Amino acid sequence: MTTIDNPTVPFTRPIPGHLLPGRKMVVKGAISPRSDRFSINLKCGSEDIAFHFNPRFGEQKIVRNSYISGKWGHEEISGGMPLVRGEHFEAQFECNEDNFSVELNGKHFCNYSYRIPIHKITHVNVDGDVTISQITFVDA
């Protein structure tokens, strides 16, 4: 298990080790009372984004997508908006054989099928109106 404590947003850090089926990334933080949006991105180097997780409070949806070779893919937006401005949250991203399983505050929110193989993911990035207290990588 590896933990990143109180990183300053925006930030980008290498993921310790590799993402493999069974491994989890747990993000704990607080959403600004006036937050419009924030994003948690799992990146492949400096350009491609394997998983873009983007709560948008003005639109009341959480967009999931990938950015590959300079182009955004198809947005997935089902599931509504279980996160609340001004509140703490915990987001868990579990690597499965063919998708990420996402839990928000202990409840299953969605699955997101891999569009880039997970072994190519090298960095985690967080940006926007959010404060992160901890990111933990839990081994399988």
Rank of each mutant, 00 (worst) to 15 (best):
I4E: 13
I4Q: 14
D5R: 13
N6D: 14
T8V: 14
T8Y: 08
V9D: 13
V9L: 10
P10V: 11
F11Q: 11
R13N: 15
P16A: 15
G17V: 07
H18K: 15
L19D: 04
L19H: 03
L20R: 07
L20F: 02
P21L: 06
G22P: 07
G22N: 11
R23N: 08
K24Q: 13
K24L: 09
K24E: 14
K24T: 08
M25R: 04
V26M: 03
V26G: 03
V27I: 06
G29D: 05
A30I: 10
S32K: 12
S32D: 15
S35K: 07
D36L: 08
R37Y: 08
F38M: 09
S39Q: 12
I40R: 10
N41M: 11
L42I: 07
K43G: 11
K43T: 10
C44T: 11
C44M: 10
S46Q: 12
E47N: 12
I49F: 09
A50N: 12
F53Y: 14
N54W: 07
P55I: 09
R56H: 08
R56Q: 12
G58A: 02
E59R: 04
E59N: 11
Q60L: 11
Q60W: 07
Q60V: 05
R64E: 00
S66R: 07
S66F: 09
Y67E: 03
I68R: 02
S69A: 10
S69C: 04
S69I: 01
G70E: 05
G70D: 02
W72C: 06
W72P: 07
W72Y: 07
H74M: 10
I77Y: 01
S78T: 13
S78M: 10
S78Q: 13
S78D: 15
M81Q: 13
M81I: 06
P82R: 01
L83H: 04
V84S: 10
E87K: 15
E87W: 02
H88K: 05
H88N: 09
E90N: 03
E90T: 09
E90F: 00
A91S: 10
A91E: 09
A91R: 02
Q92F: 00
Q92V: 14
C95H: 03
C95G: 03
E97P: 02
E97R: 10
D98N: 14
N99H: 15
S101A: 12
V102S: 00
E103T: 03
L104N: 04
L104E: 00
N105R: 08
G106R: 08
K107Y: 03
K107L: 05
K107R: 10
K107G: 01
H108I: 00
H108G: 03
F109W: 08
F109T: 04
F109M: 03
C110P: 00
N111E: 12
N111I: 02
S113L: 13
S113A: 12
S113H: 14
S113P: 00
S113V: 08
Y114M: 01
R115I: 04
I116T: 06
I116K: 04
I116E: 01
I116Y: 04
P117D: 05
I118Q: 11
I118P: 13
K120L: 02
K120Y: 02
I121Q: 05
I121E: 05
I121P: 07
I121M: 12
T122W: 01
H123M: 02
V124F: 07
V126P: 11
G128S: 06
D129K: 03
D129M: 01
V130M: 00
I132W: 09
I132A: 06
S133K: 02
S133C: 00
Q134S: 15
I135L: 11
I135M: 07
T136Q: 05
T136C: 02
F137E: 00
